[in-house]
Amino acid sequence: MADIAHATRIEPLAGRIGGAAGVALTPAAPANRVSLRADPADAKALSKALGLDLPVTPKSSARNDHGRLVAWLGPDEWLIIDENADPLTDLVKVTALHSAVDISHRNTAILVSGKGARATVQSGCPQNLSDKVFPVGSATRTVMGKIEVVILRTAENEFRVECWRSFSDYAFGMLSESAKDCLA
């Protein structure tokens, strides 16, 4: 069995580029992702294991120096994204009651960047993504066009749009269409 070829990871949006004047659309790098479910009372123990403070405020996120990102999705639900280490490994030793499910391949993400980034994402999303209501660091599950997405504002002019794998073609198309009018 030594000669088994190791399967390679093929991201659904591999090789796609897009955008328009004012905005660039780039598939995010492959990442490890975990859906973490736990009573928020146990956030402390989980935070310690993960190396960052689990956000407990709606619509917020946290990020550590190693690039690990955690978004609050619900009162007992977090999305952990890490392009390097695997958060599951860190969670194995946690004794506090929780559910950690690998969703690395369930989701994929599109980075939307440029001065037209906000308008591009806003075009399909009914939530208010303005600076006042959705400042840098905000994260939310919501809808974009006809699909569900998680939107994270990673910088003033940069958004990360996470969606399920099979919806990524639609998401990329929708953002490409929205990008055309992002400087309106």
Partner: peptide, 10 residues
């Protein structure tokens, strides 16, 4: 004490 996670696309 149980949680559900969709893994259809995982």
């Amino acid at each position: 004490k149980v949680w559900l996670t969709s893994t259809t696309e995982q």
